[in-house]
Simulated scan of single mutants.
Amino acid sequence: MSIMEWVFFLSTLCTVLSTFCYAGTYPKAQNVSWFSINFKTLLMWDPKPVDYSYTVEYSIIGQNRERNPHCIRSVNTECDLSNSLVDLKATYSADILSEPPYGVNSDLVEFPHTRSDQFTPYTDTLIGRPNFKIKVSEDEKKITLNVEDPPTALFNQNEPKTIRDVFGDDLQYKVTFGKATSTGKKTKIFSSSQIELEGRDIDPGVSYCFNVQAYIPTRSPDKRLGEPSQRQCSPSNDTSIFDEYGIGVIAGFILLVVTLVVVTIVVAVVCCKRKSKADKGKEGVPLKPV
């Protein structure tokens, strides 16, 4: 064998061996998990790749696997599958393959891979906190909460769908409320996004504080409730003296009263001392003879 043939042979052998060794040391993805809120669904894992890449394959259980074009030989450790999981009530699984980076070939038939847990968007996505506005009727006998259904990451003709568009009648709202001046709480469930409280639920003219959560009774118990809203309170006509006049005015009035009291005491003491001296002076003057 000539020198050139040996060089070619050794070069080819080194390439094959390096490719095999390089491919064989790709670490598998770890800590694979789904994170989904309002149908914004990410598949996440570790570690950050060095000299290799990740490809995500997903499918409905029992069907052929597909690839998201943004998650092929990627150096990212997450893949946004929000628009890929079209059938929201289907159950999916995913595989994360450890592959060579772009431009590097490999003779491996099967790459190291890690399978995710199963995930069903309709029953597993978390529901974010809703916003709401409070309206008190003129006679103060009814409080209305107008809840804004949280938007999702899904679209219909370029318009974002709300959770009401997805869940329909399955969506309800849990309202926790109580008087602003009390620690007692009540809880009620409503099927509408417009919530009305009156009668035995509230006392007219009293301030009430509210928290609202999405509630989906068709789910498993640990996933029925969404994230609670921020606490909001209704106005009240039972205004305190501080609300009526302000702390500055009240402080000024108190200072004036204290000043008057002090001045009065000082004047009284001075007058008493003068009167006492006058009385002593009269005692030292001899009586005039008759």
Results as ranks from 00 to 15, higher is better:
Ile3Asp: 11
Phe9Ala: 10
Cys21Glu: 15
Ala29Asp: 11
Val32Pro: 07
Ser33Cys: 07
Thr41Leu: 05
Leu42Gly: 00
Leu43Val: 10
Pro49Val: 10
Glu57Tyr: 14
Ile60Asp: 01
Ile60Gly: 02
Ile60Trp: 01
Gly62Phe: 04
Gly62Leu: 05
Gln63Trp: 04
Arg65Lys: 15
Glu66Lys: 13
Arg67Thr: 13
Pro69Tyr: 06
Cys71Ser: 15
Arg73Asp: 11
Arg73Asn: 15
Leu81Trp: 14
Asp87His: 15
Lys89Asp: 12
Thr91Arg: 09
Tyr92Leu: 04
Ser93Val: 09
Ser98Met: 08
Glu99Lys: 12
Asn105Leu: 14
Asp107Ser: 12
Glu110Tyr: 13
Phe111Gln: 03
Phe111Ser: 04
Pro112Met: 00
Pro112Ser: 00
Asp117Pro: 01
Phe119Glu: 09
Pro121Phe: 02
Tyr122Trp: 14
Ile127Asp: 00
Pro130Glu: 10
Asn131His: 11
Lys135Thr: 14
Asp139Pro: 11
Ile143Ala: 07
Ile143Gly: 09
Ile143Ser: 06
Thr144Ser: 14
Asn146Val: 02
Asp149Ile: 00
Pro151Asn: 08
Phe155Tyr: 15
Pro160Cys: 04
Val166Ile: 14
Gln172Asp: 06
Thr183Ser: 07
Phe190Arg: 06
Ser191Thr: 13
Arg200Met: 06
Pro204Val: 03
Gly205Thr: 11
Val206Ile: 10
Ser207His: 05
Pro217Trp: 05
Pro221Trp: 04
Lys223Leu: 11
Cys233Val: 06
Ser234Glu: 02
Asp238Phe: 15
Asp238Met: 08
Tyr245Ala: 00
Gly246Asp: 05
Gly252Glu: 02
Leu255Cys: 01
Val257Glu: 01
Val257Gly: 00
Val269Tyr: 11
Lys277Pro: 03
Ala278Cys: 02
